[in-house]
Write a protein that binds this DNA or RNA. Structure first.
Lengths: 281, 281
DNA sequence: CGATCCGTTCCGTATAGCTGAACACCTTCG
DNA sequence: CGAAGGTGTTCAGCTATACGGAACGGATCG
């Protein structure tokens, strides 16, 4: 309509070469390995260019070069793993994740909140029937139970939250509580009711298709109210009574939050450099 | 000494820009976040250059930009996670990892063999006292029990293995079986004896410092003898009798290998494109 | 033995990344 | 209050450098 759209972002950003390398890397990831010409034709680049980028990536250790195929190496996993292991949220949660998974015999997952998205950064336990979730998978806060729990918890301590989430409730219309196509006004009330329920109970429940499994989710927040992430436990079908799983989750959440705040109290003396994702203001 | 050394590798490789970007990324990873000038002074680059690279990395989603600090994002974890989840070794092992961890109440780890290194790609269970291992951590095959197990298994099916490992036994002198400072000749015999023991028993045992914990390791290989990785279970101090953990590991190894070969039988019909790390010859 | 694939190398060229200086902004300190 | 020093950001020019096309080895297939 108006001329506010500039196609392909004229990109006064710089460094298109790096962007190109990452595009190649992501293609290798998607295609699960590829050859030079395959990449060149797929991305519309010349073979020599692709070759240069690939050899560079190999020398940097991010790509392996067996025979005629290039694959992404495990270096990405290592970097991402170190990032995860350093995060205080993971440090505080892993013991509880283990015991929670053992006692409920379910799948426990840890989500990290970043910029209106929830990222799964750790998983403990495994059951073939449970819905698959990939490590590092990033979903909007309005989807898949772990997000709404964080949104509901955000509202509790005022609306300032991160600062730009004055429309948190309205944004959450995308939840799939089998009520995807109601009228907008009803949805707002419905979502608000749901959030109230979550806040009152401390956790949220989501039943899988045909009651195959149940997922309990609780938000992990610091003492000052800032939401850091969420803890989730999914129990298959008719294992034990589901209520105890919810109570057990609450215990775990409290213990993780306790460990988290104590971590911050000990490490925040002279906050080292960036106080770990705490958007200070 | 001789002129075979060319300083800094004149690099007829190409694409130094990409190399620069990755250097910045790795610095951000190590320093756990940094600012523009911090990176510039650390790497000896101008501020504007660093700024360009950082904005590009942010736009690509690999770096987040809060306040004045740049951090690596979870995108690396996502890419690495997908790489892991796609690997048949992980697919075949995760069920057994879960049950093995539950039954032994120990920490189960899965290692992937790649180019004379062992990379830890998955972990199930957690215990605070157990030796830390980071996701994606890459150690030489001569270290830390998981490697030697694979080396011993390699020898079984002839020496051709990957092709360039004619010195596998001699390279394994770095094992820490509390005999780090013996004479070279003895070590060779010692290592050979150790390999024989491993092959006879099917798994290897490593006792932690002061008997704090025990680690059992077994190699995972295909039916044709090619070693794919290793499975490891670490049990704390005096939990149960250690022998049953070893036996339980053997069961798990067999089941994983079974699942692995069946996977290859079903997917290798018209080998899709690269037959997944099987160095075909 | 051509015919086709593949990956790799080479080189000229113009593009695009690098630099240093100037800018805006914020604390802090004199 | 206004220098002083610390950020991150922008701009314009120069030159290094990434790009592309063509030519080169090496397989594999008919």
């Amino acid at each position: 309509m108006d001329r506010s759209l500039r196609m392909t972002e004229p990109s006064r950003n710089r460094v298109g070469t790096t962007e190109k390398s990452f595009t190649i890397l992501e293609l290798l990831q998607r295609e699960d390995g590829a050859g030079v010409t395959e990449v060149a034709t797929a991305l519309g680049m010349s073979k020599s260019t692709v070759h240069s980028h690939l050899t560079t990536l190999v020398e940097c250790g991010y790509v392996t070069h067996h025979d005629t195929q290039y694959h992404v190496s495990t270096k990405l996993l290592r970097l991402g793993g170190r990032l995860r292991d350093q995060s205080p949220l993971y440090q505080a949660a892993r013991i509880e994740m283990k015991s929670l998974a053992a006692e409920t015999d379910g799948v426990v997952r840890l989500y990290l909140e970043e910029e209106d998205d929830a990222t799964m950064i750790a998983q403990e336990g495994y059951s073939p029937g449970i819905q698959e979730r990939h490590l590092g998978e990033r979903t909007p806060l309005t989807e898949s139970i772990a997000g709404p729990v964080m949104l509901a918890e955000r509202e509790r301590s005022g609306d300032e939250g991160t600062g730009d989430d004055s429309t948190t409730v309205e944004d959450a219309t995308g939840d799939d509580d089998s009520a995807a196509d109601r009228e907008a006004l009803d949805i707002d009330d419905d979502v608000r009711d749901r959030f109230d329920r979550i806040r009152r109970r401390g956790y949220a429940v989501e039943t899988g298709p045909e009651g195959s499994d149940r997922t309990f989710a609780g938000a992990l927040s610091r003492r000052d109210g800032t939401v850091m992430g969420a803890l989730t436990v999914t129990v298959p079908g008719e294992t034990g009574d589901p209520l105890s799983a919810g109570d057990r989750l609450l215990e775990a959440v409290e213990r993780v939050e306790l460990s988290l705040t104590s971590w911050y109290d000990s490490h925040a003396t002279f906050s080292p450099k960036h106080s770990w994702h705490v958007h200070s203001n």
